[in-house]
């Protein structure tokens, strides 16, 4: 996609003010974006905030979890002021446990064959289509890739998923788990090449304290900022970004 100024309806705003400014208004609609970070970096919170903010303006969303049970996910999110239970109850934001879907499909929950992966892909597409979602999250693509047995299967799965969701004008966030303090985007080294965008959630040490950071590494089709920002997570405002102070420590 060439870098041109996209109109508002070609952009999917995250509702996180500073992030949307960095993106030039929002994520190009239909993109598949990798949200990368180590454990506790704020990936799930950022993705949930993205879905809830979308739902608040009438865009239906779906959150597929594979890393934690739904009751834990909702319990953790209930503390945030942005989280609105009514949006879940009304079906504007749908929370789905992918492990339960896998079980119901009769798939081996630990390792997927090519046929299993294909069946799962079909069901993800069907759910997105039936619910007419404009925003989709998979938390995490790493846990899903772990079940796919070869790099080719991973590439094929993400490519097909991204393509079909893009056709539905659905903007997708895939969380990617990486070890702390390592500047890598994925566990398998494939996910970042198939994705249209990369958001990197890291941290820096300042006098022994860890400062959360955020960097927009890539966003196809958008002239975006690549500046590293400081990231804050609070129950009142969820994820917020501020310019990172850069003086030598």
């Amino acid at each position: 996609m060439p870098i041109t100024e996209l109109s508002k309806n070609e952009l999917c705003d995250t509702g996180i003010e500073e992030l949307d400014v960095m993106l030039g208004g929002g994520i190009p609609t239909g993109s598949t974006v990798l949200v990368v970070g180590s454990s506790g970096s704020g990936k799930t919170t950022l993705c949930m905030q993205y879905l809830i903010n979308g739902a608040k303006k009438g865009e239906r969303g779906v959150f597929f979890t594979i890393t934690e049970p739904l009751f834990k996910l909702t319990k953790n999110m209930e503390g945030f002021e942005f989280y609105d239970k009514k949006l879940i109850e009304s079906g504007m934001v749908n929370l789905i446990d992918l492990r339960i879907i896998s079980e119901r499909l009769g798939l081996d929950t630990e390792k997927y064959t090519v046929e299993d992966a294909s069946a799962l892909l079909d069901i993800l597409r069907d759910i997105a289509d039936e619910l007419n979602v404009k925003r989709l999250v998979i938390d995490s693509i790493t846990a899903l890739c772990y079940r796919l047995q070869t790099p080719e299967m991973i590439r094929d799965f993400i490519f097909k998923l991204g393509s079909s969701l893009a056709a539905m004008k659905c903007t997708t966030l895939l969380t990617s788990e990486v070890p702390p303090r390592k500047f890598q985007y994925s566990q398998y080294g494939i996910e970042e090449f198939i994705s249209d965008g990369i958001m990197f959630l890291g941290d820096i040490e300042r006098k022994g304290d860890l400062i959360r950071t955020f960097q927009l590494v890539k966003m196809r089709g958008a002239a975006h900022s690549r500046t590293k920002s400081a990231m804050s997570i609070s129950t009142k405002n969820g994820v917020e970004l501020a310019p990172l102070l850069k003086s030598r420590e």
């Binding site: 300042r206 006098k207 022994g208 304290d209 400062i211 400081a230 804050s232 009142k236 405002n237 917020e240 501020a242 310019p243 990172l244 102070l245």
Partner: peptide, 16 residues
């Protein structure tokens, strides 16, 4: 704010 080293957070809270 957790620590006086979290200067960006201090700035955010002021503006908020």
């Amino acid at each position: 704010v957790e620590s006086p080293t979290m200067l960006e957070k201090i700035g955010l809270e002021i503006i908020n």
